[in-house]
Simulated scan of single mutants.
Amino acid sequence: MNAKKIRRITFQTFGYFILGVTAIFCVYPALWVLMSSFRPGDSLYGETLIPTAFTLIHYEELFVKYPFIQWYGNTLKISILSMMIGTMLVLMTGYVLSMFRFKGRKNLMSTLLVLGLFPGFMSMIAIYVLLNQMNLLNTHAAVIIVSAAGAPLFFLYSKSYFDTIPRSLIEAARIDGAGHLGIFFGIVMPLSKPLLVFAVLMNFTGPFTDFIFSKLVLRTSEKKTLAVGLYDMMTDKTKSQFTMFAAGCVLIAVPITLLFLFLQRYLIEGLTSGAEKG
């Protein structure tokens, strides 16, 4: 066995070792929360990872003691509406910046890219004041508007994907008399299924898992989302209910996990297809 082959085997072994360690660090916390949701009692810690006895009482109490179904409905409502509006905004922004050439285009793209680099919480005080003046505090509309309005800041992946679509198709459609909306919905979107799936998932999971802004805006129990409701449940100083919190985390994670597993092929295509042309 020559030195080159030994070096290659060594690097591969080291790479598999790093991947294995990373997988353990990623999987263990999720497995720990899952097992905790079935552990009797309400303790944060357990003697073993796998409980000696299993119970479903925490899942039952989650629906009996708290308006968990209402929190779930609020979260789905905000996520679905934000996803619909945000997806259209980010796709149309990417389409315009990809297909059209106009004065100030590069400056606009640079501005959007720079704004997208700033953490969202830096503008929360200003947004809070604006929502207060518009009488939108403690409303789902406030979260939907802000979530959807921030979507165009991440236009780059949609623009990069649209750059790969042959211009000959667009020009042929214009010669046939198609308008901009007709070209966008009739030609571009059918060719952009991976991008559409990626945009839908990203604009859905963002509001679905958002906590900071929802906590700032939503105050009353009937308006809370899952993240805010579970946080308030854990910070209740009169009760210690970690296992019930773990059960809520599992119920939140299951649909998102299944959705990602089902659409992961389209996610990978949507991320990599735009890499051919900038």
Rank of each mutant, 00 (worst) to 15 (best):
L261F: 11
T164I: 01
V146Y: 01
V129T: 10
I85A: 03
C26L: 13
V27N: 08
M234R: 11
Y72W: 10
H140I: 10
I187R: 03
V96R: 05
I256A: 07
G182P: 10
I144W: 00
M99G: 10
G94N: 00
N138W: 01
E47L: 11
T13P: 09
L196V: 15
Y45K: 07
V217E: 05
C26G: 08
G248H: 05
F162A: 00
T272D: 06
S158I: 01
L112Q: 04
A227M: 08
D232S: 11
I175L: 12
T243L: 04
Q241V: 12
T220P: 09
V64A: 11
C26M: 15
P207F: 00
Y28P: 10
A275W: 06
W32I: 06
F184H: 07
R167W: 09
K65R: 13
T209V: 12
L117G: 06
S158P: 08
A30L: 15
Y157I: 14
Y95I: 02
G177I: 10
P166Y: 00
G206I: 13
L117A: 06
G270E: 08
G278S: 11
V250Q: 00
M134S: 09
T52K: 01
L112Y: 00
A142I: 01
L19S: 15
M1I: 13
A199I: 08
